[in-house]
Nucleic acid binder design. Structure first.
Length: 414
RNA sequence: CGGGAGAUGUCAGAGUGGUCGAAUGUGCCGGUCUUGAAAACCGGUGAGGGUUAUACCUCCGGGGGUUCGAAUCCCCCUCUCCCGGCCA
C-alpha cells in the first residue's frame, strides 16, 4: 500500500509519480478525501469513547462511596446511544478508504522510464551473442514432438487446457535445473526454503495479489486459501506482521515452488507450447532489506539471475521496465529476456522487482531502527522460471535433426 | 474426522467484572562496580492510531454478544497440545 500520509502532504509529487503507471489524478483526490474523512470520523468517535471511558470509571468510585448512580447511568446510556451512528460512520469510512487504497499501485521510482507498454521498455545491455544457425531453428513444440518431451494432450486430459506433462529427458532436465538454480542461489548467500504451496488471503493481500487480482488466482473451495502464483508470496510473508532486528538484515531467501495462475485475460496469447501455463515451476529469490540498502540487494539479484543464464550459455538481454509496464507492487523492475532462436525473439525469463516499502506496509514487516520501528524493503525475482528455461535450452541447443544438447553445467545434475 | 485441555508481553507465567496494557521471573538495552567479563545492584524495555509534544483511542488468538464497564462472563471460528480414527 502506498503511504497515505505522503500522498496527503505531497499530493503533486505523488500524483505525478502515479501518472507514470497510468493512474488518474481524480482517483487520488478521492483517496485523499477518504483519508481525511476517516481521520475526522475517528477523531469524533475517539473523543466520545474517551468520555464514555471516564464516566464508566466513576461507577467504581461511586459504588465504593455509596453514592447514587442512576443519574450517571442515564448520562452514560445517552452517550452510548449517540455513539452508535458515529461508530458506524467511522467503520464505513475505513472500509471506503481501504477498498480504494488497497487497489492503488505502488509509486514507481523517479528513475523509471516513461512509457505506456512493453514497447517503451529500455534495453540496458545484451549478454552473449545469439548463436548463428546454418539451418532454420525450430520452435520448442516442434522439437518436443521430435524428442517426445512434452505431452500436451494428456496434460489437458488430466486438468484442462494450458496444462502439460514433461516426459523422460525433459522431466529430468527440469529437475536438474531446479537443483542447479537452488545451488547457485545458495552459493550467493540465499538461504533455501521449502514452503507451503497454498497460502491464506491475508498473505496474498500482503504481497499485493489480493484484493485486486483475485481473478488470476486458483482458490480452494470453501476455504480461505489460494494456490500460490509465485514463491514470492510465502517467502515474503514468512515475516508478515513481524518486527525484525536490524542486524538480521538483509534476509536473502530462495525456494523452489510450482506456481499457479489462471492467466485470466491472456486468452489467445502463447497458446502453443509451454511458455504460458496454468502451472509452472520457478525458483524464486526474495529479499527483506534495510530501506537504505535495498538498491545493492537489487543489483545482486539482477546479477545473479543474469549469471545463471550466462552459465547455461543462454543469450539474453537486460531490460528496464517503463512505468506503464511495471507491475502493481513494483517501484522498479528489471526483466531478463532470453533469446529464443525458434521464435526469433527475446522472451521474459526472469523479472526482478524492488517493491520498496509497498509490500512491507501491507504485510506489516518492520525492523527496529534504534527505538523506532521502520518498514523494510522487500524485493523479489525469478532465478529462474524453469519451464521457460527448458524452452530456451531446447531452442538454443538444438541440432539440425531436432536432437537437443544438454548445457555443460547441467551434466553433473543429470 | 471424533473426545479432552489450552491460547496473556522475547519467553515462562500470574491475573475470573472497575484503579490491568497487565504481577513476578526471564531475555534484551543502558548504568554502577570491575583491568575486562561474569555475578550483584539500579534504571529502561509490546504494537497500531493520534498530537509540535502531551492528552486521548485501540489491541490479552480472531469475530460477535452481555454490561455503564470485559484479559476475566456467553456464543461462533481458528490454532496448539493430548487420546482415538484415517493416512504419505
Amino acid at each position: 500500500m502506498i503511504d497515505l500520509k505522503y500522498l496527503q502532504n505531497n499530493f503533486e509529487d505523488a500524483s505525478s509519480k502515479l501518472q507514470k503507471k497510468g493512474v488518474d489524478t481524480a482517483i487520488l483526490e478521492k483517496l485523499q478525501e477518504l483519508f481525511t474523512a476517516l481521520k475526522a470520523a475517528n477523531a469524533t468517535l475517539e473523543s466520545m469513547k474517551a468520555e464514555q471511558n471516564s464516566m464508566s470509571k466513576l461507577f467504581g468510585q461511586y459504588k465504593r462511596e455509596g453514592k447514587d448512580i442512576s443519574e450517571l447511568k442515564a448520562k452514560v446510556d445517552a452517550n452510548k446511544e449517540a455513539m452508535v451512528p458515529v461508530q458506524e460512520k467511522a467503520r464505513e469510512a475505513e472500509e471506503a478508504l481501504y477498498s480504494v487504497a488497497l487497489a492503488m499501485p505502488n509509486f514507481p521510482d523517479d528513475s523509471v522510464p516513461e512509457g505506456a507498454d512493453e514497447e517503451d521498455n529500455v534495453e540496458l545491455r545484451k549478454v552473449l551473442e545469439p548463436r548463428s544457425f546454418d539451418f532454420k531453428p525450430k520452435e520448442h513444440w516442434e522439437l518436443s514432438e521430435i524428442n517426445g518431451w512434452i505431452d500436451f494432450e494428456r496434460g489437458v486430459k488430466l486438468a484442462k487446457s494450458r496444462f502439460a506433462i514433461l516426459k523422460g529427458e525433459a522431466s529430468r532436465l527440469e529437475r536438474a535445473l531446479i537443483n542447479f538454480f537452488l545451488d547457485t542461489n545458495r552459493a550467493k548467500g540465499f538461504e533455501e526454503y521449502s514452503v507451503p504451496f497454498i497460502n491464506n488471503a491475508t498473505m496474498l493481500q500482503g504481497t499485493g495479489q489480493l484484493p485486486k487480482f483475485g481473478d488470476d488466482l486458483f482458490k480452494i473451495e470453501d476455504e480461505d486459501l489460494y494456490l500460490i502464483p509465485t514463491a514470492e508470496v510465502p517467502l515474503t510473508n514468512m515475516y508478515n506482521d513481524e518486527i525484525l532486528s536490524e542486524k538480521e538484515l538483509p534476509l536473502l531467501m530462495t525456494g523452489y515452488t510450482p506456481c499457479f495462475r489462471k492467466e485470466a485475460g491472456s486468452a489467445g496469447r502463447d497458446t502453443r507450447g509451454i511458455i504460458r501455463q496454468h502451472q509452472f515451476n520457478k525458483v524464486e529469490m526474495v529479499a527483506i532489506a534495510h530501506p537504505d540498502k535495498s538498491e545493492e540487494v537489487f543489483d545482486l539479484m539482477v546479477q545473479n539471475a543474469s549469471d545463471i543464464l550466462t552459465a547455461l550459455g543462454l543469450p539474453h538481454r537486460v531490460v528496464e521496465l517503463c512505468g506503464g509496464d511495471l507491475g502493481f507492487s513494483a517501484a522498479t523492475t528489471i526483466d531478463l529476456e532470453v533469446w529464443l532462436p525458434g521464435q526469433n525473439q527475446y522472451r521474459e525469463i526472469s523479472s526482478i522487482s524492488n517493491t520498496r516499502d509497498f509490500q512491507a506496509r501491507r504485510a506489516k514487516i518492520r525492523f527496529k531502527d534504534g527505538k523506532k520501528n521502520r518498514l523494510v524493503h522487500t524485493l523479489n525475482g525469478s532465478a529462474l522460471a524453469v519451464g521457460r528455461t527448458i524452452v530456451a535450452i531446447m531452442e538454443n541447443y538444438q541440432n539440425e535433426d531436432g536432437t537437443i544438447e544438454i548445457p555443460e553445467v547441467l551434466k553433473k545434475y543429470m
